[in-house]
Design a protein around this nucleic acid. Sequence first.
DNA 1: CGTTTGGTTGAAATGTGTCAAACTTTGTGG
DNA 2: CCACAAAGTTTGACACATTTCAACCAAACG
Lengths: 248, 248
Amino acid sequence: MDASFNPAVSPMIRKLESIFSLDESERTALLNLPLQVTMLKADQDIVREGDRPTRSCALLEGFACTFKMTAEGKRQITAFHIPGDIPDLQSLHLEVLDTSLATLTPSKVGFIQHEALQELCDNHSRIARALWRETLIDAAIFREWTVNVGRREAYARMAHLLCELMVRLQAVGLAQDQTCEIPITQGEFADATGLSNVHVNRVLQALRTDGLIILKGNTLQVLDWDQLKQAGDFDPTYLHLERKQEAA
Amino acid sequence: MDASFNPAVSPMIRKLESIFSLDESERTALLNLPLQVTMLKADQDIVREGDRPTRSCALLEGFACTFKMTAEGKRQITAFHIPGDIPDLQSLHLEVLDTSLATLTPSKVGFIQHEALQELCDNHSRIARALWRETLIDAAIFREWTVNVGRREAYARMAHLLCELMVRLQAVGLAQDQTCEIPITQGEFADATGLSNVHVNRVLQALRTDGLIILKGNTLQVLDWDQLKQAGDFDPTYLHLERKQEAA
DNA sequence: CGTTTGGTTGAAATGTGTCAAACTTTGTGG
DNA sequence: CCACAAAGTTTGACACATTTCAACCAAACG
């Protein structure tokens, strides 16, 4: 390991490698990215709708979410972010942010100047492709969420979301034995699924009663993957993972 | 005009120029794109979920939509496409399609081999940026649709969708005097908004009664843009248009 | 012109939201 | 380490937006 390497970026590399094969020189280039690392508290805004950031943010530890408020004051979460994600990579090519980004838990984030990202893309066309691909997969997840919210009833909707989180966490090594930590409150689940928190509570109880999951505190354990998958009408294709990982 | 130029691509260029400034050499490069032009009937699949296409499709004339079916047989439309759009540009970097794409009306489409697109991107880094940007804007629209379906009630939801279509059509010169052609049935609006067709019908009647729109056949006329915008909680920022066009 | 497709209407059913209170867990400062 | 506050979860009763069903109507079309 070169002394100038920045080991903090490793979650980001692990994430990228879950969707794109990197070679040694590419990993090295990523490890050399200048990163401004910061610790953030829970429920803290990282960037806000309307901002014109000159940098993007890599989530290194902790959970975050992208959201938007309606005129009526309701919140819709459009994405959950887990370690390794670059939640606002889009700001590299879209000047104005159309959503806000906030932490859900205490988090470690690394800011990367757009210039540095641009230079990386110019010098490594395959990294450019990998990052473009990452934003395309984000888009695929947004599409799937629209389907989930628009056409699945509450029980399936919640099951689907849990499936997605499980598979994504597994892809970056944050789940094992069908178990993972999901520090997301029922109110946050509600804002992500377009349901009320009361109804999320009832649906989660149903999922427990049906023996599909154990969800206590922040720990989710899937007891019956096949049934949860079926209940949620979940097909992981849209996550476009490099090596398919069945949560088996 | 060079004889080898392909004038069929012009809707695509007009669309790109609505979100990114092209110079003469870039326009020329786009005009030289090898395009396989085909006429399609209404309600015809262009590509299907699970396909692994080697080309992307530019919509030159007509309307199309991206959609997904749930296990219960319900359909969710995740995007409407208008002339100039490249609805499956994402397949350039995502091997497997996670959604289907179909025409809504008789359409003229131009297929572009991925190799040709890749070469174009390699030779013109600014076009690469423009195309990446286009996919990022598509993603922003998906996000907004999630908000729309998840957190707005039917009346606002429908108003928002009409606002979006109006502004997008205007951006490519397909709307004037607050009027445009929208060949979308109430059933298709329903599948896009996550409502039933019966309820879409009722909401449209309410929008008419309230004097916000005239919608007869395929012709939409907005009578009171400000009120429609307010009713739909519509803020066009997420469309990231190059020169903002107020529908005024 | 009949047939199909899409639009409209009304009545009844229902999934989910709202409200309000109680309960439980977590975090924290004395 | 307790005590208390704060945050999150659970429960029940009721309200209501939206769906479903079913019929009818209007327009488009070959």
